[in-house]
Amino acid sequence: MRYIRPLSMEDAVGQLAGSSGTAAILAGGSDLLVRMKGGFIEPDLILDIKAIDGLSEIRETAEGFSIGAAVSCALMGESAALKGEWPGVVEAAKLIGSKQVQGRCTITGNLCNASPAADSVPALVAAGAMALIAGPAGRRTVAVEAVPTGPGKTSLAKGEIIEAILLDRRAPRSGDAYLRFIPRTEMDIAVVSAGVNLTLDEQGVVKSARVALGAVAPTVLLVEEATEALIGRKLDEAALERLAKVCSGACRPIDDKRGTVEFRRKVAGVLARRAATTAYARAGGK
């Protein structure tokens, strides 16, 4: 077992591509160390990417935000600019684990851990976030929903590392929100969750909408029917009812220790509805 701390992305990609055996990328470590403790993984190489230049920064660009792969969720919560434009994404990131875990965990790690219940992912999917990936063949950008392919599995090729998560600048009259259901008030994994991202026209009619559900399928679900249910409407009771119904209908959940099929189905609709109400208000809708 080796621990290395590369200083450049090129070096990191090279180390990763050239490694034999199991390699693990360490940013926040809040998933990796738990899996190591449980004996589920014994990596031959631990690649700590936190010393790579720029990876621990949130950068504002003309296009939007670039959130480095080593940016802790606590740091995201401290960025007024990010919170101002993407409150739903930040509140999702701020729900992962405890304050202690917040100080370490990253949304990139949350995405790459590829848990269907990952807290930040539905919000990122709803936000239309992109992942900037560095690899032996250079850099590429993909939609975040294309990264996890199933529980614990990603589409990243050998040697590839997510460098940053990219969020667009906001159009006027836009708002997003994220809600999850947990039995306690903190320290839980989402039993079911919903992220909603809306843009309105000047009359308060929904122009564009993205709704994503977590923990109701092997990967986060982007609910197309929900977009249809919202676009062209003000968020009146009928629209909300319809949204809840299509979200419940889109679920393909399982029974497990955290919840039942019936519960997840029902609550997915409730959360989507509540998150949409918040997102709508944030977008200036009345």
């Binding site: 470590g29 809040s30 738990v34 403790k37 405890s98 304050k99 875990v101 370490r104 320290m187």
Partner: peptide, 23 residues
Amino acid sequence: GTGDCGACSIILDDRLVCSCLVL
């Protein structure tokens, strides 16, 4: 040992963390 109880809390460069989740 899994970041769920906080009994190992320390402060690392002004950030509160669980020392069981830090190498």
